[in-house]
Amino acid sequence: MITLTLNGLDVSVEEGTTLLEAARFLGFPIPTLCHRDGLSPYGACRLCVVEIGEGPKAALVSSCTYPAEEGLKVRTASSRVRRARLMVLELLLASCPQSKTIQDLASAHGVRQQRFRQEQEDCILCGLCVRMCEEQMMAKAIGFRGRGQTRSIGTPFDIKSDVCRQCGGCMYICPACQLRCTYTEPEKAICGACANLAPPCIAQDPFDDMMCYMDPCVACEIARDD
């Protein structure tokens, strides 16, 4: 067992526990976008930053990838951490304004506007779908491509992958995906594709069997220019 101080509270956790797991276990909320139980930690979204150490040596680290250390002093919501989180949220809003998940998170943290150049991306490169495809679906149909500004996620050569079974796991798990549809729960259906408050597909009869995310939505006939 490892003993550390979390927000002034002395706690013991199993060796190998990450700071995020420890904090959540003890009930300290830490927001994340790229972390899911069952998928390997990745540290992409940087929303889960926490401050470790004290004084001039204090540092911000991503709690989802940082293992608990003996005697570590962790603060999950210091002013520095909150400032960093708000900045991350503003940047996420700047790149992916349509994402319901990001909007909700921003709203919960009191971010009402962002000050950066507005983009209209539909991916924050969190890698959840890539890990979902590889680790849970054992398919490895999608992955990261390119780098820097042109980094993107998709199948090799942008054509239908031989190993994709169209399980839809990637779209299910995506926090930003516009094609996501909560198809099994009509009352919660949010069709990011057409941004309709009342998606027309709900009215159709075999709603449960539609699996809307498998193909471009017929109802809204989204015109994807790429």
Binding site: K140, A141, G143, R145, R147, T155, P156, S161
Partner: peptide, 25 residues
């Protein structure tokens, strides 16, 4: 060439995604 990448994936037993990711990186 695309075919070559597919063959490399097959020969090395790695997934095409990894090979393609390295090739585009």
């Amino acid at each position: 060439p695309e075919d070559a990448l597919r063959m490399v994936a097959e020969e090395t037993g790695r997934s095409l995604v990894d090979i393609y990711g390295a090739a585009t990186f």
